[in-house]
Amino acid sequence: MKIGNRVAHFLCDRTVEKWLNFRLSNTIYRLFSKFQLLKGRKLNKKDFEKTNKDVIPILIGYGYHNVFHIGDRFQALAGLGENAFFVTYEVVGILEKGAKWLSANDYLIDYANELDRFFVAPYFPEERDGRAMDVAVRLNNLFLQLSDKKDFPYVKKIIKQKGQELGIYPTVKTISNEMKDYQNNTKQSVRFTLTVGLFFVAVTLIGVISVTISSIQARKYDIGVMMVTGASKHDIGRMVVMELSLIVVTSAIIGVMLSYWTEWNNTFFEHNIRLQAFTWSLYVKIMVVSCFIILISSLIPLWSVNKLALRNLVEGG
């Protein structure tokens, strides 16, 4: 069994030169299990025990293999404002082209990310001096690579035991099981969303049909007048469908605008997180659902128009 390393990501440009300082960023923070190296050595247990004052070993992505060499040292600024400080790094390994890692945040969706443009450090400098809670939160996903999958039950048992000793209850799963759970959850989410969506479509349908029928009933006399002066049932039906379309399309536009506004204003910590849900395909789907609502909700009102007997409409005033 090999314990996975933690990875820091540096904001730096592919063309950066080695004597420039880098600002360390913790906006993207990931965990990994295994790297394939082109040159140099992997990170080891001792590397994880170094302090911020020590020279910290680092692996560089293939994209920088012509910029840095094994043994090169550089400084990166860690922390912000008054708390900022420099940490010195030493390149100990160069990652193979196309080396990949697992991402704690999105490994289920985007199974592995290429590391060509990444630097890999054993920890964040801030983390080293940070509070235990921050470290615990950052360590909420830890990947372990087993040399043999038969070891899994044993490892799981050990982790659970250690967790209990520490008063925590970790979930231990293989990635394939996690994938299955994720897929099942996704299916359930889709089913739930569909159920809720269908419920609202049904409510909308009933609402629109009721409003339209009431509107026709309330305007029977006016409809009669129109027919007396030459409008056919077809003309009246077309008018009803036009009115329905106006209601449904206006509602759809307002709904989309409200949803878009809600999404735009959604904040997660200090970052604007956009769900990226508003795509052309979504607009097409909304149009299709709107047309469906118009079509279905037209049927009963149109039937009621067809049932109108002109002789009864204008009698009695």
Binding site: V225, V228, G230, A231
Partner: peptide, 25 residues
Amino acid sequence: NDKQLSDIRNKKLSFIFQHFALMTN
């Protein structure tokens, strides 16, 4: 059919009713 009858109502016939049959709005 209804469309042909509505055409006749429009082009050949005019109506005046006791309760006027006017669009109130």
